[in-house]
């Protein structure tokens, strides 16, 4: 599984989180959040903000029970600030 942290999440995550091996027991987005709470509590706390969005394979997903697997790219997006 490829993890992508954007904006301030990338800075909080640090350089090694995107290469982190996610255990194969993680099968849903909420499972991934539980794993991150153990692996990096400060990052998990930042990700818990109400305006955080999650994209699976570059599609926004709002359902925490959404299934994810080894081949997926999961991205965590802070509130956007374009324009």
């Amino acid at each position: 599984m490829k993890l992508v942290f954007l904006g301030r999440f990338r800075e909080i995550a640090g350089p090694h989180m995107s290469d982190m091996a996610v255990p194969c027991e993680v099968k849903t987005l909420s499972g991934l959040q539980d794993f991150l709470t153990q692996a990096h509590p400060a990052l998990a706390a930042a990700l818990a903000g109400v305006r955080t969005q999650v994209a699976v394979n570059q599609v926004i997903v709002r359902d925490p029970s959404h299934a994810i697997g080894d081949a997926d790219e999961v991205a965590f997006l802070p509130p956007m600030s374009g324009g």
């Binding site: 997006l77 802070p78 374009g82």
Partner: peptide
């Protein structure tokens, strides 16, 4: 809604801007 994230750098360092 555009997936873009702005960081400003000034005399006090850098900070991320949110809408």
């Amino acid at each position: 809604d555009a997936p873009l994230w702005k960081r400003e750098t000034g005399p006090d360092g850098a900070r991320w801007i949110e809408p």
